[in-house]
Design a protein around this nucleic acid. Structure first.
Lengths: 248, 248
DNA sequence: CCGCGACCTTGACCCAGATCAAGAGAACTT
DNA sequence: AAGTTCTCTTGATCTGGGTCAAGGTCGCGG
């Protein structure tokens, strides 16, 4: 659902009917057009749970605005975020009846949903869509495996730098500023959410962010507004060589 | 590529043309039949690298026998295994020109390969196959995310128990012994490979295996032959409730 | 039979990150 | 404006697992 590796921008609507109406005003006619009546928008507030793991899931859809997360929880309360859902990311799995993870709105979000049965019918009629879904799922798989390296082998500092890189990159693809080399964005996650994503505690997240600030790798205004003066430096800190890794 | 979550046995050939000739002698006529000439078998010895990350990859295929692994490596040598390829698991990604990870033969392996271009042509002609591939990719994605929880939040002991559970389960689905409740199998991985999969060092792996043996959770004969007297106990040690988690 | 190399085990010590604890901002209610 | 709550920071201390080091076991080739 997240698409860090390829970083496909959200507006490639011609070849991406799924993302169509959810994010792109340009597209006016499409297969999905015929689906009106089975398509609906839905809003959730920050902190609300969209679906609980194990629940019946009778829709698929994509995030229009805001950020949601996929989370797994153990009985004793330990939690691990397994995916970030940014605008244009797809939610739900054709052919599966129930949700495998909790989906939680991290900020206020709007989702564009399709009832699952008709969507699946359309998938069978329209091979194009199945192909596109396969493509997207492979992207998600790459992102998940990239993240396994982060979780298994990187230090806390590298983990933070990796996360900031990904967010910076996603943000940059939306708000391109070709004139200036520095990248500015707002962190869409609390320290706790970052910790859940990185397999750390929130205290460690806080300390490492402070350390990166102290070392001039990033600058902070308030708690959430981040400036990255030198992206190459941040990538080095993430343990990726500048042109490989997450940005390949 | 690995399929821990659903644990689909390797012989569902009627609905799984991809696995067809690679693993199942029953299937005699199929789309893939027509592909002879573009299909070939290949052997690798334990330790050999099948493909290097970044290399051009002009085939797809599946593992017939033996075990291979998908591995990522950082410049400084830290490595993380991101997938285990057991017999019947699929390798390669339609639509991608290069390999994203190193594929290494962990034991001697035989692979059944198809040249990629004709395979992709067939995929377009045969929607059935695209659907099946999507299904398999979703399974892999689930397995990868399951593993993110293991890497991010579990203790060393839980990690070992999780890995043993997965191997026991895969093995059990092949060599079902309905008469006895205890499960017996040979570890197909060195301590170092286990460490790379679990995000640990080989010393910690060794210590935790010793601890599980001392506590009667498993029994060892030699270094590789494992007996699990009580699977429920092992699952508890893995931090999964007995009927949830990896075995869901 | 011996020596060698691959694999594994165990011990001693150390450190990155967890845990526990205290408090500071900032955005709300009332 | 004062309280409340949510979020974040920072300090002090503890510990799980990493690191370094020293064998042990087994299979293989000479």
């Amino acid at each position: 659902m997240l698409n860090e590796r390829t970083g496909v921008p959200p507006h490639d609507c011609e070849e991406c009917p799924i993302r169509h109406r959810a994010v792109c005003a340009r597209c006016e006619s499409d297969e999905l057009e015929q689906l009106d009546g089975i398509k609906y928008y839905r809003k959730y507030e920050a902190g609300q749970t969209v679906i609980w793991s194990g629940d019946r899931m009778d829709f698929v859809g994509s995030v229009v605005s805001g950020i949601a997360s996929l989370t797994q929880t153990m009985e004793d309360g330990r939690t691990q975020m397994v995916g970030l859902l940014l605008p244009s990311d797809f939610v739900g799995r054709p052919g599966r009846a129930t949700a495998a993870y909790d989906v939680v709105a991290t900020t206020d979000i709007v989702m564009c949903c399709f009832r699952k049965a008709p969507f699946e019918e359309m998938m069978v009629r329209t091979p194009h869509i199945a192909q596109r879904l396969l493509e997207m799922t492979l992207d998600e798989l790459d992102a998940a495996r990239e993240w396994m390296l982060v979780l298994g082998r990187k230090t806390a500092r590298e983990k933070i730098a990796s996360l900031l890189s990904i967010i910076a990159r996603r943000d940059a693809s939306v708000n391109a500023r070709p004139d200036k080399s520095e990248i500015v964005f707002d962190l869409p996650l609390t320290r706790e959410a970052m910790a859940d994503y990185l397999g750390l505690t929130l205290e460690t997240v806080s300390r490492q962010i402070s350390a990166l600030r102290k070392d001039g790798v990033i600058a902070l205004e308030g708690k959430r507004h981040v400036t990255v003066p030198d992206m190459t430096r941040l990538l080095e800190e993430a343990g990726d060589d500048a042109d490989g890794g997450v940005f390949a």
